[in-house]
Design a binder for these strands. Structure first.
Length: 435
DNA sequence: TCTGGGGTCCTAGGACCC
DNA sequence: TCTGGGGTCCTAGGACCC
C-alpha cells in the first residue's frame, strides 16, 4: 500500500491574511513587520516583485516603501493565529493524518492510488488533481492562497512544495512522486533551500561542491555523517525517499516555554525591568496553565542592544522551585529577585525574557517533602487562576492583571500600523454590507 | 532615533559513581 | 617516574526550523 506525504503551506501567510480581511489590499504591494515594527517578515507577491528583501530593518527602507506606495502593516498575531486554526480545520478532512507543523504549514499523509500502468511511466497515480481541488477549497473558504507539495517523504514534500511555487505552470501544486524521473527536478533546487540545511551547512556543502538537492542526496553518506551526525544521515535518507522523519499528528508536550520581547525604548531603571519581567512571566504562566503543565525552574534573561556599538551586556539567572508550579504569584516571587540581580544601572537593556524549563504535566503527582499549601487552599489558588484566565480570554488580554506589570509602560511593544482583529474581536468585525 | 520571537534536537565535555 | 575503565547524568552551545 503506497502512501504519499504532502506539505501544504500558505503563500506569504501574514500578508495574505491581511489581504483576506481587507480586499482593498489585493493586488497591492504589502509588507508585514515584526514586533516593535522592527523588520520585514512577510511580503505580498507584488512587494517581492519590487525587490523588497525579507528580514531588512524597517527604518532602513521606510522612505523607499513610501515612494513605491507599499502598504505597511504591524504583525497582528491574533488574526494570523485565528486564520491558521481555520486553515488547519479545513485541511483536516482532506488527509488521513495531519501534522500542524507551524502557523502556516501542515504535513499530511494520504493514499497514493496505483499508477496508470506498468512500464517506465509514472511511479504511482498522480495526486495533482487532488491538490488542485484542495487549493480551490481553501481559497473559497478562507481567501488564502496555498501551495501543495506531494512526494514520498517530508523532505521531498518540502522540495515539491518549493517547485510548486517556483514554476507558475504547476498552478501551486506539484507531485514529485508522479513524475517519471525526479532527478532533473531535484537538480533545480539549490542546496540551501533543502529543509534542514541552514547557513553553516550550506556553506560546507558549497565548499564540497554540493550545490543542489540532487547532489546532496547522492553525496557519500560517510561524509555527511562525519560533518552533521545522525541529523544529516536522516535528512539524506528522507531525500532518497526512505521516509525517516515521521509524521507527528499527536502534539508532543512542550519541554520549555519562553516569553521574551525587545523593548520599544531602552530600559534603564530597575522599576521598568521589574514591570517587564512581571508582564512576560504572567503571560508565560498563562501559557503553562493552558498547556496543563507546571514548571520546575524559572530563568530570567536580559540583554543590551547588539547594534549600538557599545559592549554587549547579556546575562541570565535561574531559580529552581522547591515545588513545580503554574501559579503566577509563586512564579513572580521567584522571578522578580532574579531581575534585581541582573539589573545594572549603567547598562541600558534592549530585550528581556522569561524561560520556564523542566515542565511537567499537572496530572503528575509531586513527590516532595515540603507541602506549601493545604489542599483546600491549593484548590482556591487554582480556581483563582482559572477565573483570571477566563476573564482575559473572554474580554481580551490584560482585562485583569497583576499590579506588578505596570500600567501603559513606556517600554511596551510598538505596533503603529496594526490592522483590526477582524476575526477575534466583535468590535472589529468587517462590515460586508450596510444600508 | 529605529534591527523579531519561540521552539527542537544533538553533541561534547565535565562531574560523578563504582 | 609510574595512576583504569566504563557508565550515567547534566549543561552549554551549536545547528536548525518557522
Amino acid at each position: 500500500m503506497a502512501f504519499a506525504t504532502v506539505l501544504i503551506d500558505g503563500n506569504n501567510f501574514y500578508a495574505s491574511c491581511e489581504a483576506a480581511l481587507d480586499p482593498a489590499l489585493i493586488g497591492r504591494p504589502l509588507v508585514v513587520l515584526s514586533n516593535n515594527d522592527g523588520c520585514i517578515v512577510a511580503r505580498s507577491a507584488e512587494a517581492r516583485a519590487l525587490g523588497i528583501a525579507m528580514g531588512v530593518p524597517y527604518f532602513q527602507v521606510r522612505r523607499q516603501l513610501e515612494r513605491q506606495g507599499v502598504v505597511v502593516r504591524s504583525s497582528n498575531y491574533a488574526l494570523y493565529a485565528d486564520m491558521s486554526q481555520r486553515l488547519m480545520a479545513t485541511l483536516e478532512p482532506w488527509v488521513e493524518e495531519l501534522e500542524v507543523y507551524s502557523i502556516d504549514e501542515a504535513f499530511g499523509r494520504l493514499h497514493r492510488p496505483a499508477g496508470a500502468g506498468p512500464g517506465k511511466g509514472s511511479r504511482g497515480g498522480d495526486l495533482s488533481a487532488w491538490g488542485l481541488a484542495l487549493r480551490r477549497q481553501v481559497r473559497r473558504h478562507l481567501g488564502l492562497p496555498v501551495a501543495v507539495g506531494i512526494a514520498g517523504s517530508k523532505t521531498l514534500a518540502k522540495v515539491a512544495n518549493r517547485l510548486a511555487k517556483q514554476n507558475p505552470i504547476q498552478q501551486g501544486v506539484f507531485d514529485l512522486g508522479a513524475v517519471p524521473d525526479p532527478d532533473p527536478w531535484l537538480e533545480q533546487v539549490p542546496v540551501e533551500e533543502v529543509w534542514g540545511i541552514g547557513r553553516k551547512l550550506s556553506r560546507w556543502c558549497r565548499l564540497r561542491g554540493v550545490a543542489t538537492a540532487r547532489q546532496l542526496r547522492d553525496l557519500p553518506s560517510g561524509e555527511l555523517r562525519a560533518r552533521c551526525g545522525v541529523v544529516g544521515l536522516r535528512l539524506q535518507q528522507d531525500l532518497r525517499g526512505h521516509s525517516c522523519l515521521l509524521l507527528q499528528s499527536v502534539v508532543p508536550a512542550k519541554q520549555e516555554t519562553c516569553v521574551s520581547r525587545s523593548f520599544s525604548e531602552p530600559v534603564t531603571s530597575l522599576a521598568a525591568l521589574r514591570e517587564a519581567i512581571a508582564t512576560y512571566l504572567s503571560r508565560a504562566a498563562e501559557k503553562l496553565r493552558r498547556q496543563r503543565q507546571r514548571t520546575g525552574t524559572v530563568t530570567v534573561f536580559v540583554r543590551s542592544s547588539p547594534f549600538n556599538g557599545t559592549s554587549l551586556y547579556a546575562n541570565a539567572a535561574t531559580t529552581t522551585l522547591p515545588l513545580a508550579s503554574n501559579d503566577t504569584a509563586v512564579l513572580l516571587a521567584a522571578a522578580l529577585p532574579l531581575a534585581e540581580r541582573l539589573f545594572k544601572p549603567h547598562k541600558p537593556l534592549q530585550k528581556a525574557g522569561v524561560l520556564l524549563q523542566n515542565l511537567q504535566p499537572v496530572e503528575q503527582l509531586q513527590h516532595h517533602l515540603l507541602v506549601p499549601l493545604p489542599p483546600e487552599q491549593q484548590q482556591r489558588r487554582e480556581a483563582l487562576m482559572a477565573t483570571i484566565d477566563g476573564l482575559n480570554r473572554r474580554y481580551g488580554r490584560g482585562t485583569v492583571q497583576w499590579a506588578a506589570c505596570g500600567l501603559r509602560p513606556a517600554w511596551a511593544m510598538k505596533r503603529e500600523r496594526l490592522s483590526r482583529s477582524a476575526t477575534t474581536r466583535p468590535a472589529d468585525l468587517p462590515v460586508v454590507w450596510a444600508d
